[in-house]
Simulated scan of single mutants.
Amino acid sequence: MDADQWEGAAVSAELAACLREAAEYRPVLLAGCVCEGCGGRAFTVWVDDTQGCAGRECVRCEERAFLADSAEVWQEAEPGVAECPCGGDEFEAAVAFSLTADGSVRWVTVGLRCLRDGASGVYADWKIDYAPTDHLLRAV
């Protein structure tokens, strides 16, 4: 998929703006999370910002998926359920992939928009220090 297809794909305007601001307007590819099983876009999300990982579970069909390279560190992580300050725990989820000059992924930023009150925020981000990184773009 090229950048034109990715940019803002399946991401609300509010969450896209939040992720772009968090990336300090570096070149990013935005990808919204969509359940492969049912096409759902509402998720419960687990994050561990210390280990740099996140996973999601579809609210509709309960299918789970890791984001980016999270599966690689999940066993060492202590993920907690993401929660909005309003108490909501169901989210629209998206990932911003910050890119280097050669197009490799350098940072992964997980953003969530609460489905109860619409508040958006960054819940986890981590640096990628290896290559190649193309596989990360498919793990949303």
Rank of each mutant, 00 (worst) to 15 (best):
Q5C: 08
E7S: 14
A9E: 04
A10S: 14
V11M: 02
V11I: 08
V11Y: 07
S12W: 06
A13I: 08
L15M: 04
L15N: 05
A16D: 06
A17R: 15
A17L: 06
C18M: 04
C18P: 04
C18V: 09
L19T: 10
L19K: 01
R20H: 12
E21S: 14
E21L: 14
A23N: 00
E24K: 15
Y25R: 13
P27T: 15
L29E: 05
L30F: 07
A31Q: 05
G32N: 06
C35M: 07
G37Q: 10
C38P: 08
G39L: 09
G40N: 11
R41T: 15
R41Y: 07
A42H: 09
V45K: 11
W46P: 03
V47I: 12
V47L: 07
D48G: 06
D49F: 05
T50E: 15
Q51S: 11
Q51C: 10
G52N: 09
A54W: 04
R56A: 14
R56H: 07
C58E: 07
V59K: 05
V59F: 11
C61I: 05
E63L: 14
R64V: 12
A65M: 03
A65W: 10
A65Q: 12
F66D: 03
L67P: 01
D69L: 02
S70M: 02
A71W: 05
W74S: 05
E76S: 15
E78G: 13
P79S: 02
V81I: 15
A82F: 13
A82V: 15
P85R: 06
G87H: 10
G88R: 12
E92D: 02
A93H: 04
A93D: 07
V95E: 00
V95N: 01
V95Y: 00
F97V: 00
S98L: 05
A101N: 11
A101S: 08
A101P: 02
D102L: 14
V105P: 03
R106A: 07
R106Q: 06
V108Y: 00
V110N: 00
V110E: 02
G111I: 01
C114M: 02
C114S: 02
L115E: 12
G118T: 10
S120P: 08
V122K: 01
Y123W: 15
D125I: 03
D129H: 03
Y130G: 02
P132T: 09
P132L: 02
T133P: 01
T133R: 00
D134C: 05
H135E: 08
L136G: 01
R138M: 12
